[in-house]
Design a binder for these strands. Structure first.
Length: 874
RNA sequence: GGGCGAAUAGCUCAGUGGUAGAGCGCCUCGCUUACACCGAGGAUGUCGCAGGUUCGAACCCUGCUUCGCCCACCA
């Protein structure tokens, strides 16, 4: 056996083994209860990032935990074509190559996309495997696969026939660079500073003018009204009159609308329904016409204004301002900070435009989706996101689902030459109503999130009734990033309820976002991106997984911290070596083949204090870990195991049991084996490679710990008395060690041994094993207390026990009093605090139990104080 | 503007009413036959600020400050 655990070789081996034994395989015919997860399909826009890795390990830990708990686990992996994202990535590549998709042509572009998908699909799969993900690869799905496409068309057709999908010209968020509409959720608002122009709109009939403040003077040409707040005294008599827009001189009405905030700007808003979502709504309320002065390319359409026509919007803005200044309409200009919408894929400023698009009427879908969470059919973790989910659904507007991209699912609708419009699943060659073969297919494609919304049931073979759907739908858990609550989670619930009459999942986990080490979001431009596979190479997948588990479900975003991953790598090594210790006692020759033998459970009477203590602790840790994983508290689980394994088992139990193992004590072997094996079992969902490598050392272990039943409660091991006694004993050893260290006495096991006798036996020595434990861990030899206790001999107070240095050792007893003086000061201070507390209202008002506890504590401190004084005065 | 969360050791974070914790880093020792990817010991905190509730507050309440996230039709 290697001295140090080698994650790289171990992980390669176990990856293969798990596939050989088909760990990920999900059997629809299994009689076991089902646990299923639809893996959020990563965008095929490159390799996996830290967020994907985190999400994968969360899901894998759950899958393994539930497998061990007797569930038939189905974890379906897949990938998403991510139309707009992928198209952008490839367009950027083409730009680097000095070409464009238009130059390439649709066919060559499509081939290029296919190549891309081929390459990255394989890569993503490989990356997930390296993290230890036990998905059911046979069920892998891709949103462009033919069966998936049929699901999309089926759903689209249903919604269309039910009147929940319609087409019409409305204002949309238009990305002039993508040359496509995007949904409200794909707009990212960024704060920026722009000039704020105060512009005079003169009254058409007579004196006076209204002053409008705007950041967009170039859209004045599309103004169709100016609006004031209905209650605004300043403008009451102007409502209903006409003003002239200051560029073209057209007469437009002054209207009153409650959307106008009298506090903002001048309290007068210019209404441009063609280029502002808000104005569009105001325009609808007042039946105002729509004027358009900006093209789909983001250029001005103003044939009457040659200086503006054909200019980009930004250029036109300054040119229009200049025209206003020259015309005397500009009252003043000042900077203003405001929110400007950008395309979340390419960063271009969004241009609100009126174009014909396809829409989903979401109201009918939203209410049941809200109800599912409000009623507890779906639980969101951490709970704080529940409110966010409900708020978002409450204020939902219709969802624009059409995109003008080259890539994606086509809108499955055709129009015949006679104007019959119909949705289809298989593209028809003739019109179903009039049989003409002159059909025009809709040129648009669907929003990627429309197809993603169907994921949980589409991947299980819906709409066909089939065993997989029966068995594994609804899925159990959805684990995903926080930023796609609206894009995806909410829409899955809406579609799932609509088409399957069931929630698509019962628990939603929003894991933390991994920030760079500098606390900022990881981004290439910031240079703080960390490749998870690089971490796997450096520290092993288990170390990355354990760190991920510790941060996954926190309230805040998690900062990347390589030293913590390193810490878990060291823990893996520690755990590995704990097994090696056991191993070597039974296989004296280093490197010899063989397994740690199975031994029968010893009679309870043959167990020592340390055995009873460690088993009691093991039972407690088992309970904590089980509860934590059930609650998705991965941090609680890894924390409890780490602490127990290292701070209790390795630091104390193994050190104490070594001698007994050496002498072939069967009870000791059984307990050690039990502790290590069961701890490995508890750790397996989070650190599967390491724990399988450990379990393999034990005779009688299965091919993987995944096949081991999860440890049940072992109430018979709970032993509070032994825990109390053992803590006392450990305290004594620690105290004594500190004392000796301070006096410059070597406390290594191989230092020269120091003879001690017991002067006052405190509770630390109440168990017969205790003295033996002291001499096992410290270079202490016990000698009989040789008469004449009054003689000034160096002494040590450890806890509430006093030990005297054996006669033969001699020593300067004054020097030995120094630590005692320091300890005494502490004890006195604490005793004073306690006395003060007990003398006050605490004694009367606090629960009797708590008061009792404090009294006992005071008594203990007093005892200790007494011992220390005796030592000092001797 | 609204909502949610966070502020604890030099750093990254646990801790949710009863004597302040971990990992890393730092200082001193020790290459002890499981492990130097280790072990033993040590230093380090008015738990953001101000009030309040309570016998008792890092923890509950109120306000404030700073940071983060989400939402919103501030022209």
């Amino acid at each position: 056996m290697e001295t140090a655990y080698q994650p790289a070789t171990s992980e390669r081996r176990w990856r293969d083994r798990w596939e050989e034994i088909g760990l990920g395989h999900a059997d629809s015919a299994s009689p076991k209860p089902a646990f299923s997860i639809a893996q959020p399909p990563p965008n095929i826009t490159g390799s996996l990032h830290m967020g994907h890795a985190l999400n994968a390990l969360v899901q894998d830990a759950l899958c393994r935990f539930y497998r061990m708990n007797g569930y038939e686990v189905c974890w379906v992996p897949g990938t998403d074509h991510a139309a707009i994202a992928t198209q952008n990535v490839i367009e950027r590549q083409l730009a680097d190559e000095g070409t464009t998709k238009e130059e390439l042509g649709r066919e060559a572009f499509a081939r290029r996309v296919d190549d891309w998908y081929q390459t990255y699909q394989g890569r993503i799969q490989e990356q997930l495997r390296r993290l230890g993900a036990t998905c059911d690869w046979a069920r892998e799905r891709f949103t462009l696969d033919e069966p998936y496409v049929r699901v999309i068309r089926t759903v689209f057709g249903e919604l269309y026939r039910q009147g929940l999908i319609y087409r019409g010209p409305r204002i949309v968020n238009w990305c002039p660079r993508c040359r496509s509409a995007i949904s409200d959720e794909e707009v990212e608002y960024q704060e920026q500073q722009d000039p704020f122009y105060y512009v005079r709109y003169p009254l058409a009939d007579g004196e006076g003018a209204l002053v409008v403040a705007t950041t967009r003077p170039e859209t004045i040409l599309a103004d169709v009204a100016v609006a004031v707040s209905p209650g605004d005294q300043r403008f009451t008599e102007l409502v209903g009159r006409m003003v002239r827009e200051p560029l073209g001189g057209r007469e437009i009405p002054v209207i009153a609308d409650s959307a106008v905030d009298p506090q903002l700007g001048t309290g007068v808003l210019k209404i441009t329904p063609g280029h502002s979502a808000e104005d569009y709504e105001i325009g609808e309320r007042h039946q105002l016409p729509v004027r358009t002065v900006i093209s789909l390319d983001g250029q001005m359409l103003a044939p009457d204004f040659p200086s503006l026509d054909g200019q980009g919007v930004i250029e036109a803005r300054e040119l229009a301002a200049e025209l206003l200044r020259r015309g005397g309409a500009m009252v003043r200009e000042e900077p203003v900070v405001h929110q400007v919408g950008h395309c979340d894929r390419c960063g271009t400023i969004i241009e609100p435009l009126v174009t014909p698009q396809w829409w989903v009427r979401v109201r009918a879908l939203a209410d049941p989706a809200a109800e599912a969470v409000a009623s507890g059919q779906i639980t969101i973790h951490p709970g704080q996101f529940r409110g966010q989910y409900l708020d978002w659904l409450a204020g939902l507007r219709d969802w624009c689902i059409s995109r003008q991209l080259w890539l994606g699912h086509r809108i499955p609708v055709s129009t015949c030459v006679r104007g019959h419009v119909f949705a289809w699943v298989d593209e028809p060659t003739t019109c179903p109503e009039c049989a003409t073969d002159q059909l025009t297919a809709d040129p648009d494609v669907l929003d990627t999130w429309f197809s993603s919304a169907l994921w949980p049931f589409a991947i299980l073979g819906w709409p066909e009734h089939n065993p997989a759907l029966e068995k594994f739908y609804p899925t159990s858990v959805l684990s995903t990033a926080r930023d796609i609550l609206q894009h995806w989670v909410v829409r899955m619930v809406m579609m799932g309820l609509r088409f399957t009459d069931q929630v698509p999942f019962h628990d939603v986990l929003f894991h933390a976002t991994i920030l760079g080490a500098d606390g900022a979001r990881m981004s290439k431009s910031r240079g703080n991106v960390v490749d998870p596979l690089e971490m796997v190479d450096r520290y092993g997948a288990d170390a990355l997984r354990a760190w991920g588990a510790s941060v996954a479900m926190g309230n805040q975003d998690a900062r990347f911290d390589e030293t913590k991953i390193d810490g878990y790598a060291k823990f893996a090594n520690k755990f590995w070596n704990m097994t090696r210790l056991l191993h070597r006692f039974h296989f004296p020759a280093e490197g010899e083949e063989g397994l740690i033998p199975e031994v029968s459970e010893p009679a309870i009477g043959s167990l020592q204090l340390a055995d009873r203590w460690v088993l009691s602790r093991l039972a407690a840790v088992t309970q904590v870990t089980t509860g934590a994983l059930q609650k998705f508290d991965f941090d609680g689980a890894i924390d409890a195991i780490y602490d127990f394994a290292w701070r209790e088992v390795a630091d104390w139990y193994l050190e104490l049991v070594k001698g007994r193992l050496e002498s072939g004590d069967a009870a000791a072997l059984w307990v050690t084996r039990q502790v290590l094996y069961q701890t490995a079992t508890l750790l397996h969902p989070i650190m599967p490679f390491l724990t399988d490598a450990v379990a393999e050392q034990f005779a009688g272990s299965p091919a993987s710990l995944d096949l081991t039943p999860w440890p049940g409660a072992t109430d018979s091991w709970a032993d509070p008395d032994s825990e109390v006694a053992m803590i006392a004993c450990m305290t004594l050893i620690s105290n004594l060690r500190k004392w000796l260290t301070e006096l410059g006495i070597e406390v290594t096991r191989h230092g020269s041994r120091v003879p001690f006798s017991v002067a006052v036996a405190g509770p630390e020595l109440a168990f017969p094993e205790a003295q033996g434990y002291v001499s096992a861990l410290l270079p202490v030899d016990w000698v009989e207390a040789a008469g004449n206790p009054g003689a000034a001999r160096p002494q040590v107070v450890a806890g509430r026990t006093t030990l005297s240095l054996g006669k033969s050792a001699g020593g300067d007893s004054e020097k030995w009093k120094d630590p005692a003086r320091r300890e005494l000061a502490k004890a006195v201070a604490f005793a004073t605090t306690l006395e003060h507390k007990l003398a006050g209202p605490f004694a009367a008002k606090a629960p009797a139990e708590v008061v009792q506890k404090e009294r006992r504590r005071l008594e203990e401190v007093r005892q200790r104080e007494g011992l220390l004084r005796r030592l000092i005065d001797s």
